[in-house]
Simulated assay, not measured.
Amino acid sequence: MEMSVPSQFKLNNGTSIPAVGLGTWQAKPGEVGNAVGHALKSGYRHLDYPLIYQNEKEVGDAVKASGIPRKEIFITSKVWNTHQSNVAKGLAQTLKDLQTDYLDLNLIHWPVRLVANETSQLLPTNPDGTRSIDRSWDQRETWKQME
């Protein structure tokens, strides 16, 4: 029996999402743009680039340089942990860096709110070296902002 993977799936809101996407976790600066450009030329139409990857600007440049219309590319991002108390701020940064005015899908990266401090805006730590986590944060608050 031959099986095939669908090229797209339907989300609950009726939107189609390409079944295969490209992410670039830990890709080196200067390589990300080339990878995105090559993927788009090869037929990829789903890109996954959350803020924590720290390569959104390079991705945005590559998408723009590809010449493929934005409406033909499905872009997923994720609300980073230090932006859970201000989703709009993180989204504004992501949209600016990706050079687009919308995302097709925005997820909560991890269900843990981190509190930015002088050690880091993205992966903050406490004086004892532990991660700066807001253990009282109610994830429903992040979700409400996203809605």
Rank of each mutant, 00 (worst) to 15 (best):
E2M: 10
M3K: 15
S4D: 05
S7F: 06
S7I: 01
F9A: 07
K10A: 06
N13V: 07
G14R: 04
T15E: 09
S16C: 09
I17A: 04
I17H: 03
P18G: 12
V20R: 04
G21Y: 10
G21M: 05
G21P: 13
L22R: 06
L22Y: 09
G23E: 06
T24K: 00
W25G: 05
Q26N: 11
A27E: 00
E31Y: 01
V32D: 03
V32T: 13
G33M: 07
A35P: 06
A35R: 01
V36D: 07
V36Q: 11
G37L: 08
H38F: 09
S42G: 13
G43P: 14
Y44S: 03
Y44H: 05
E56A: 07
V59M: 04
D61W: 02
V63C: 11
V63T: 05
A65S: 14
G67C: 11
R70E: 12
K71Q: 15
K71E: 14
I73Q: 03
T76L: 02
S77L: 04
V79R: 06
W80V: 03
N81A: 08
N81F: 00
T82W: 08
N86S: 12
V87S: 08
A88F: 04
A88L: 01
K89F: 06
K89Y: 08
G90N: 09
Q93N: 13
Q93C: 10
L95V: 08
L95Y: 05
K96S: 14
D97K: 15
Q99D: 13
Y102N: 14
D104R: 08
L107N: 03
H109K: 03
P111S: 04
V112P: 08
R113L: 10
L114E: 05
V115S: 01
E118R: 10
T119G: 10
S120F: 05
L122A: 07
P124E: 14
P124Q: 14
P124K: 12
T125R: 11
R131K: 14
S132N: 14
I133K: 15
W137R: 03
W137F: 15
D138E: 04
D138Q: 06
Q139M: 15
Q139W: 09
R140D: 08
E141S: 10
E141W: 05
T142K: 08
T142P: 05
K144Q: 15
M146V: 11
M146T: 06
